[in-house]
Design a protein around this nucleic acid. Structure first.
Lengths: 195, 195
DNA sequence: GCCTTCCTGGCAGTTAATGCCAACTAGGCG
DNA sequence: CGCCTAGTTGGCATTAACTGCCAGGAAGGC
């Protein structure tokens, strides 16, 4: 443990993030420049880019870690659980592991009202999707004779994320007053329940 | 009709597009600069930006027109058709209205393998989704008493696009040898058929 | 207390994108 | 035919996100 370096790094990262989120909320994402964030956070522009490779990473940078968590959680669900239920369980773990809800709400609103950010966010999510496909496919084998299990797995994962996205958008639109997991269930029911 | 201006504009646009697609295919998207495209297309950099607002628009610029077409097609389906079937009909019209298949394949591959392009493409698609929600919601009213029709409509539209995206990715991965509409049906079946 | 190692900050440069202005050209009108 | 207006084009400057490079400094082992 290179202790002091690690610690001051953590402090710097947190200071940058706080400054950035505050400025984004005050002025909007596009209107806030990297130079301004660096100045107010008391760090050089050059170092800011070393911590966060891009401006977008200031908002959706910690996605990689969550993707890992999601994958591991889905893998560890009991083998009898259907792919849909395993993915739902993974989603629920994400909810508890996320930021404090108030911050998550602020970030979600920012992402959903800034097109370029939303696109970037979805792009990162697509990487999770790719990693989840083999995990989901492993749960499809024991059903009846399915053709093209890969197609099936990809479609299921894509749909689950589409519903997560839709639910999150609705949740942010209602200022977090409606339970996110409930919204997700409603979305999935709208898709899967025939009638 | 301001004829000559209109016509030379069309010619210029086509020349720029041809040059751009060729260079992207040869060197990759990120490695090709706007300056190079402008130089080889025989136009100033400034004018190129007037035709195409951004570099990404060179690849996915004509998406707006397709979005309009999709919305109109879905609207015009017979009222008895379910939301799912109406959306499928819209998708099928898109397929025939698109570029020549060989070019569409090239563009799709470029988009799927270039993260920034894919993000931009998704961003444009999100605008289609938002516009389709009211159209889809109008088809849900005559069913049994549904709670939160907006949630339902959003979830359905998001899922349809997730399946379109998945099908297109698979289609590009198979070099277009599998029918895109068939892939879409497989994706949707994987999501909607319980078993 | 030195020395290696890693981090930081400043500087210059690249690329996409935008605003501004002067030169130009198509097309209408006398 | 010749001018005039309107819309177009291209060059110049500028901004903002990034990247490479190099010097200077601090942390931690010896």
């Amino acid at each position: 443990m290179t202790t002091l370096w690690e610690r001051s790094r953590q402090v710097a990262v947190q200071a940058i993030l706080d400054t950035a989120v505050r400025l984004f909320a005050e002025q909007g994402y596009e209107q806030t420049t990297i130079a301004q964030i660096a100045r107010e956070a008391g760090i050089s522009q050059r170092s800011l880019f070393r911590y966060f490779g891009t401006k977008e990473d200031l908002v959706c940078g910690d996605q990689e870690a969550l993707g890992e968590l999601l994958k591991r959680t889905v893998e560890q669900q009991s083998a009898e659980m259907s792919a849909w239920d395993a993915l739902r369980a993974g989603f629920e773990v994400l909810l508890t592991a996320n930021h404090p809800p108030e911050r998550a709400l602020e970030l979600s609103r920012l992402i959903f009202e800034t097109p370029s950010l939303r696109a970037r966010y979805i792009e990162k999510r697509l990487r999770w999707q790719a990693e989840l496909v083999p995990v989901v496919r492993a749960r499809l084998g024991d059903g009846p004779g399915h053709p093209a299990p890969d197609t099936q797995a990809k479609a299921i994962v894509a749909t689950v994320f589409a519903c997560i996205d839709t639910a999150t958008e609705l949740w942010a639109g209602h200022d977090g007053r409606i339970d996110l997991a409930d919204l997700y269930d409603q979305c999935l029911a709208a898709v899967r329940d025939h009638g």
